[in-house]
């Protein structure tokens, strides 16, 4: 079966029940997508499939046939980063940093759907992404800064 990761064409003929997470991390060597719980409970493994945020630990390889998968490595274009990535840096969001790929991917999906979310919209959209370091208020501010046009994409 064929699909794309970050615009690159991929052919896969392995176990169709392998979660996309392990394909990305172990077979494709793309470790930006993190393993947190393996049960769709923490959001660390969030990627986009055809622009929609999904938990890659709960997405089978069979499910991604014919789709376009975007991971944190492909959110920006080369040196030009997504506005959320810049906002994350400007607000010093990450502490340990581990959950942040998933947080950013989830937030990017939110803003693509709803460019001007309320605080409740943000809570609702981000509720599936755990940050054990407790960076939530900075995550919220970063999403707000991008929604308000205060921070744009660019280089870091």
């Amino acid at each position: 079966m064929d699909f794309k990761i970050n615009g690159r064409a991929i052919s896969y003929d392995g176990d169709g029940e392998m979660p996309l997470l392990w394909y990305l991390r172990d077979l494709a060597g793309m470790t930006g997508t993190k393993f947190g719980c393996g049960a769709g409970l923490c959001g660390a493994c969030t990627v986009h499939v055809d622009g929609m945020a999904v938990r890659s630990c709960q997405t089978w390889m069979d499910d991604v046939e014919g789709t376009e998968v975007t991971t944190i490595e492909g959110l920006g274009t080369g040196d030009m980063l997504h506005a959320l990535q810049i906002a994350w840096a400007e607000n010093n969001v990450p502490q340990c940093g581990y959950c942040q790929s998933g947080q950013i991917m989830q937030a990017a999906s939110l803003l693509a759907d709803n460019p001007n979310p309320t605080d409740e919209d943000i809570d609702m959209a981000m509720s599936g992404n755990i940050c054990r370091c407790g960076t939530y208020q900075r995550i919220k501010k970063s999403i707000r800064d991008v929604a308000d046009g205060k921070i744009k994409g660019g280089k870091l």
Binding site: R25, D26, G29, M30, T31, G32, T33, K34, F35, T71, I72, E73, G76, L81, Q85, I86, W88, A89, N92, P94, G97, Y98, Q100, S101, I104, L156
Partner: peptide, 28 residues
């Protein structure tokens, strides 16, 4: 308030955690 030296790695997914280590011929 100097910015974390790993910031760019964190936001682009290129930081290497223990779970992310890969070696040639490695078994899991």
């Amino acid at each position: 308030s100097v910015r974390n030296i790993y910031m760019k790695d964190f936001v682009t997914g290129s930081s290497q955690f223990g779970q992310d280590v890969r070696r040639e011929g490695m078994l899991y």
